[in-house]
Every structure is written in C-alpha cells, then in structure tokens.
C-alpha cells in the first residue's frame, strides 16, 4: 500500500495534477469495500453496516 501511495504521489507530481490525489484516494478507500468481493465471508457484515 505504501508503494502504491508513493507511486500515486509521484504520478500527481509528474503530471502536476495534485487535485487528483484526494479523488483517487477516496475512490481507493471506498473501492476497498468492493475489494472484499463476493468471495469474502466478512463482506455481508460490511455491506450490511454500510
């Protein structure tokens, strides 16, 4: 995850699109709910709570 965040930050710097950082980060965090996927046994708990 640390490597992903480092790459993401360097990407924003190289492209000079810092405004993308929070967008991608929020999407990645909310996307973590999707990462649980249909194959995880704790997914129904998380989905229900959400």
């Amino acid at each position: 995850m640390l490597e992903f965040l480092t790459d993401l930050w360097q990407f924003m710097r190289a492209r000079k699109k810092y405004w993308l950082f929070p967008v991608v980060l929020i999407m990645a965090l909310l996307g973590a709910l999707l990462v649980l996927g249909p194959g995880s046994s704790i997914a129904p708990f998380i989905y229900t709570l959400f």
Partner: peptide, 17 residues
C-alpha cells in the same frame, strides 16, 4: 452465507459507485 454475500455484492457495488 456466500450466496447472500454475492447478492449483497451485486446490490452494493453499483450503490457505492
């Protein structure tokens, strides 16, 4: 339980997105 999870996944994915 896993079937239930799959159904929830199908509902929640479009909702979250």
């Amino acid at each position: 339980w896993m079937r239930f999870g799959q159904v929830m996944h199908k509902i929640m994915t479009p909702l979250i997105l």
